[in-house]
Design a protein around this nucleic acid. Structure first.
Lengths: 219, 219
DNA sequence: CTTGACAATATTGTATACATTTCTTCTATA
DNA sequence: TATAGAAGAAATGTATACAATATTGTCAAG
């Protein structure tokens, strides 16, 4: 089977808007008139509309039908709820990776984690967030549940937006990333309880997840 | 704030296609040419395309860009993976409902469960599946995590399609539904371990979920 | 200074036309 | 009979026009 590289204008518009949002070139709360994108991508409104609808489904854009679309802006409450979902999905991903992942598949995680660390040290915040998402999504990929991967991909788009909107200093970044290594070790040794515990504590504080929710996965 | 009832043609096309799929008027694997829907909804292709893209995002339709769209058709493997995700999300939903739901909110579950039972006894399979989804989605609603509710709503669209595609006899239906009552009791008594155990066993067989995944939530 | 009404402007929703690509059918050839 | 290829039909991707709706700006009245 051949894979065609040719992208439709819809896809190009989608990629461009997504990139602009994730690089804060359009800020949360800012409106996105269709016309504005047609000027950038140099296409008509039809593909732009399609792209905006997709980004709306994925949660990066909020559309008010017949009125306007704007970049999503998450409240503290929203972030907590995203965290609850992320925790549930990340834990399932770990369990599946332990069950279905070979050591050679797991070894990819080391490389991604290393890239993440280097980006953090360089102070490149966008790159660091990008590789951090990639790290977690790779775990999901190894678990081989395509639907979970799709959900995680969408969820991590929101997480990306949250992370670039929050100020994070380099020390915190590096502390966080150092935990990646522990997770990798737990996966290699197929220690699911350890992996779960690590993931729970990795997320608990950032998302302010309730103790009771955490306990649900640890008892 | 006023709520406008006026639906756009896109929404009407979306509703119609969704209804047709969930009532097996278009069968899994069957192609959906845009033209066909324009004749039914009596609108141009523009709103129909929008509706199809949305259904594609939600998993009821599979689109091959530049080629065609068809009704999704799930393999045994797909169903297992849907089950894994459903379990994770249903369990989170229960935990949140226990934590954030009042008794009066929980009482709604009884009414829905009763409607579900009546539909099953009448032998109305579409109605039974509809109320069964509604029952589980109501638990999520009570948990008050809007993002989880959106994800669950989409997931239950797939589940609806799976359930109507599988033959289910009335006895099995009624046995399944009788378990709703136990779940309601566990939620009322705020017994999260009990609720989790019930949900796990409610889903395990239907989706053929691995023992290890189940144990992850029960230990 | 604030408020409300109205005009002007901007933006979205939808229909339609057409180019491009894919799918189907039919025929010529081996 | 099987197969490759071409012609025709069908379906999608995109641009554009216009109607309907929402937003913004202006100005007079309180």
């Amino acid at each position: 089977m051949e894979v065609t590289n040719k992208k439709s204008l819809s896809e190009m518009a989608y990629d461009k808007i997504k990139e602009m949002i994730l690089h804060l070139e359009i800020k949360p709360g800012e409106r996105i008139p269709e016309e504005r994108i047609t000027e950038i991508v140099k296409c008509s409104r039809t593909p732009v509309r399609e792209a905006l609808r997709k980004l709306n489904e994925e949660g990066l854009v909020v559309s008010y039908p017949g009125r306007y679309s704007e970049v999503a802006k998450y409240s503290k409450e929203d972030i907590k709820k995203i965290g609850e979902l992320r925790l549930a999905q990340d834990l399932l991903a770990c369990q599946l990776a332990i069950r279905h992942g070979s050591n050679s598949e797991l070894s990819v995680l080391k490389k991604i984690s290393e890239k993440c660390r280097i980006s953090a040290e360089k102070g490149n915040i966008f790159e660091r967030i990008y590789y951090d998402s990639m790290f977690h999504l790779e775990i999901t990929k190894i678990g081989k549940n395509q639907l979970l991967l799709e959900n995680q991909t969408k969820l991590y788009m929101r997480i990306h937006l949250i992370q670039i909107s929050k100020y994070t200093n380099i020390e915190d970044s590096i502390t966080q990333i150092s935990k990646h290594k522990d997770i990798i070790d737990a996966l290699y040794s197929r220690d699911d309880k350890k992996a779960r515990s690590l993931v729970c504590h990795h997320l608990k504080d950032f998302y302010d997840i309730d103790e009771e929710i955490i306990n649900m996965y640890l008892d």
